[in-house]
């Protein structure tokens, strides 16, 4: 095998694996994006994803329904989100502090539920089956990539396009962004900031839960303790990188998908380099990415600020 063919096989592998690896980050980041544009910084995404990992797996094991698995995983994370909302929106506590607490709770719950349900036996599940479109899926090179992914990926893509349209082309999106810029103005204009912030947090929680469930069900096929390994935080970083634009979020997530597949694939080609250095890659890439964006983007002006009425 010459160098070029190795390179070709390698890049095909990366490209083909990319969407699957990108999906959980994209799901969580899309939710976080909406959260942040309503002015809520949700650092609890990591915990919400973790809760989604175990709930998704457990529901799938007990019901056998992928639909229920993703739905209930999403809803379980919504519960954590409502807790975050109660503390930060209603009680107006610091969002960084509350987000950290949510992360802890989700983290602990995921391991606790797994141990309580399955003791130490390892549960393995099959991923969501890929779709198959006659002819199209069989197209050489691009067929599988474009027309042979699993339905969750297409649904996420649709959600991304929908959210982008909602945020920037509808009144509801404008109202939500107003809440993130200046809740007082929103209120004066007849938009209820509390309502919008709760709605955003519910959506953000749901998407994080979906992302977590996808990680156990479709990527790993089993549960591992703390298996998101910072993916939730990377999702938060991606939102900054994407400057609150869902289409940039998609590109960023795909890039991360590529990073994950890249190091998983290249490990076997370069056994002389300790695998730990490849494992570090996503975190280092995250730092470089947000360094690149820095503070140049316009963040929602009321991000991470509780809405406190005077008088």
């Amino acid at each position: 095998m010459n160098f070029l063919s190795v390179l070709f096989i390698f890049s095909m592998a990366v490209i083909l694996g990319m969407p699957v690896r990108a999906a959980p980050i994209f799901a969580a980041a899309l939710g976080e994006n909406v959260d942040q544009q309503a002015g809520t910084l949700n650092l609890g995404v990591e915990g919400m994803m973790l809760l989604g990992t175990i709930v998704g797996l457990a529901v799938l094991v007990y019901t056998g329904s992928y639909l229920l698995a993703f739905l209930i995983a999403g809803l379980s994370a919504v519960l954590l989100g409502l807790f975050h909302g109660l503390v930060t929106i209603t009680l107006k506590a610091d969002q960084v502090v509350s987000g950290t607490a949510i992360w802890f709770i989700g983290w602990g719950l995921s391991g606790y539920i797994y141990t309580a349900l399955f003791k130490t036996t390892e549960i393995v599940v099959k991923p969501v089956p890929d779709i198959y479109i006659p002819y199209l899926t069989n197209l050489p090179y691009i067929g599988k990539f474009l027309f042979g992914e699993d339905p969750v990926i297409y649904l996420l893509l649709i959600a991304g396009i929908g959210i982008n349209f909602f945020l920037y082309h509808t009144k509801g999106g404008l109202n939500l962004r107003t809440v993130g810029e200046d809740p007082l103005v929103a209120e004066i204009m007849g938009v209820n900031p509390t309502l919008y912030r709760y709605a955003a947090i519910i959506f953000g929680g749901f998407m994080a839960g979906i992302g977590g469930a996808y990680l156990t069900i479709s990527i790993v096929g089993a549960f591992e303790f703390d298996m998101t390994a910072g993916m939730g935080f990377i999702a938060v970083a991606l939102v900054y990188f994407a400057k609150w634009k869902p289409y940039r979020l998609l590109l960023g997530s795909l890039a991360f998908g590529a990073v994950y597949v890249f190091y998983l694939t290249i490990e076997s080609y370069l056994p002389s380099i300790p695998y730990q250095f490849f494992e570090m890659l996503p975190y280092i890439v995250t730092m470089v990415l947000i360094l690149y964006v820095g503070s140049r983007a316009h963040a929602p002006a009321a991000l991470a600020m509780p809405y406190i009425k005077e008088g």
């Binding site: 506590a93 709770i105 989700g106 602990g108 391991g111 606790y112």
Partner: peptide, 22 residues
């Protein structure tokens, strides 16, 4: 499971801030 500890830490933290804010 020792994971209970993480839940307790998280809950203590969040209830402590609730105690501060309420």
């Amino acid at each position: 499971s020792l994971n209970l500890v993480i839940i307790i830490y998280g809950l203590i933290m969040i209830f402590a801030i609730m105690g501060v804010m309420i």
